[in-house]
Nucleic acid binder design. Structure first.
Lengths: 136, 136
DNA sequence: CTTGGTGCAAATGATTTGCAAGCCT
DNA sequence: AGGCTTGCAAATCATTTGCACCAAG
């Protein structure tokens, strides 16, 4: 049942209008384990539907982010990258040699940060950790 | 002995040329506990030396960052902010209501991340955690 | 039908760069 | 002297927006 209908439902359930462009973009983002930027998405989308414009990709990402369906990753310089909102909380590790972006699973970090925020008199809303590292 | 000479020495010891513009910028950045962006620095610098240009502020920040004297903070959207390279390792907390940027002291987070990276087969090079939170 | 979405191109905002002139070492 | 640094303005890059048209509910 991995079918385009799934993505349409995803949009519908989020209270968003279902358009072919949005469906295409959501399906691309759902089916990759990369963390593509707008240009990546635009090029891939273009191959499936040559009417898609960059402006729409930008607008769609913004709409999806506000709806809580995707997460925007802003790493130093470089254009923003995106991932479908993870159901399992995770952070990121950048391989400084290859530039690869790897996900760090687990709630260990979140648990610590929760406590750290509390100790500073704050309630944690969200967090993001980026580790730059090199393969051993 | 908090004197402009200190900042000149800082530059000299880093192997950089000492210019009035750089001295001004380093002193401004050293004496604030804000995390100013280029525009902030440009305006402040202007008041002390009206020959400073934005281009120079950008170029200086880049040079200082490469020399390891300052840290560049890229938070979602919004222009990059800067701080003198901290001798004590710390992360950041953004107050989602006020926009304030607070430093999170301590090595607790670093220790955990070191271990996490190792468990994934990586050697940690650097890390940065940003917590978005709300006052309790 | 009516509201919201889209493509296109122009506009914006942040940062970078080419060039001629000036300053640091 | 000779190379690095600067100011200025133009250029570049990522992202946003105005507008006329089209499509989803």
């Amino acid at each position: 049942m991995t079918h385009s209908v799934d993505y349409k439902q995803l949009l519908r359930e989020a209270g968003l209008r279902v358009t072919p462009q949005r469906t295409t973009i959501v399906s691309l983002l759902s089916e990759t384990d990369d963390h593509p930027n707008v240009e990546d998405l635009y090029e891939k989308a273009r191959r499936l539907d040559d009417t898609v414009s960059v402006a729409t990709v930008y607008r769609t990402m913004s709409v999806l982010e506000n709806a809580g369906l995707v997460r925007k990753l802003v790493l130093d310089d470089a254009p923003a990258r995106y991932e479908m909102m993870p159901h399992t909380d995770h952070d990121h590790l950048v391989d400084v040699d290859s530039g690869d972006l790897v996900e760090i699973p687990g709630t260990e970090i979140a648990t610590l940060l929760d406590r750290v925020a509390a100790e500073m008199g704050y309630e944690l809303v969200s967090h993001h950790t980026v580790i730059r590292a090199r393969k051993l």
